[in-house]
Simulated assay, not measured.
Amino acid sequence: MILEFMRDDHRSCDHLYTDAEAALLAKEVQKAQEAFEAFAQATLHHFDMEEKELFLTFEKRTGMMGGPTQMMRYEHQQLRSLIESMRLALRENRHSDFFGIGESMMIMLQQHNMKEEQMLYPMIDRTLGDDGALMVQTLQDMAR
């Protein structure tokens, strides 16, 4: 339940990033900035859903304060920094920097998402059991 919902959100964020790259490659700078901002906001919202609800609930249920959720938070911080660097590069028309940072960011993001989808989300699904549907509803209710 959590796995499917969060995996779908990962895919949605990926599509927004692809839109930003495609627009910039087509020299549609304004469209690229808007698409990138949509990607950034969606990705940061995804991190918030995890950090403010999902991870906290998992940690409370399991008593596991370190481990996988701590590592995911650390990676979120790194990704936030890369997203901000990309935002600045785009704003300053440093398009080659944008693409270079973007390549690193996407590699890290794909690896991050894979760890969540293959390891963490299934653990959370098992931990929450029947409460998974309630958690999905809570995550859906979080304002974007």
Score class of each variant (00 low, 15 high):
I124W: 00
K27S: 12
A35G: 04
M71V: 15
Q140Y: 04
R91P: 00
V136E: 05
R126L: 13
M119C: 10
Q70R: 03
M64S: 09
A38C: 07
F47D: 05
M105W: 04
F5P: 01
T43E: 08
K115F: 02
H46N: 09
A20L: 04
R11W: 02
D125I: 02
M105K: 01
T18I: 07
L3H: 10
L3A: 12
Q111I: 03
H45R: 07
F47W: 09
G132T: 14
F36E: 00
D9E: 13
L54K: 00
T57L: 11
T69G: 00
D19H: 14
D125W: 01
M71A: 11
G132M: 13
K60F: 09
H46W: 08
D14P: 02
L88Y: 13
M49S: 06
M123E: 00
M6P: 05
F55A: 10
G102D: 07
L56E: 06
R144P: 12
D14Q: 07
L25I: 15
E51Q: 11
M86W: 07
F55E: 01
M49E: 09
G132L: 13
E59I: 10
I101A: 08
F99N: 02
K52F: 08
D8F: 11
Q137Y: 02
E103N: 12
D9M: 05
K60H: 11
S104M: 05
D14S: 07
L3V: 15
Q33R: 12
G132A: 15
H15A: 15
Q111R: 12
H76R: 09
M123I: 03
P122F: 03
A20M: 03
M65I: 13
E21K: 14
A22P: 03
Y121P: 07
M123F: 02
L25G: 10
Q77H: 03
F98K: 08
H95Q: 13
F55R: 01
L120Y: 03
M105H: 05
T127A: 11
C13V: 12
L56H: 04
A22G: 06
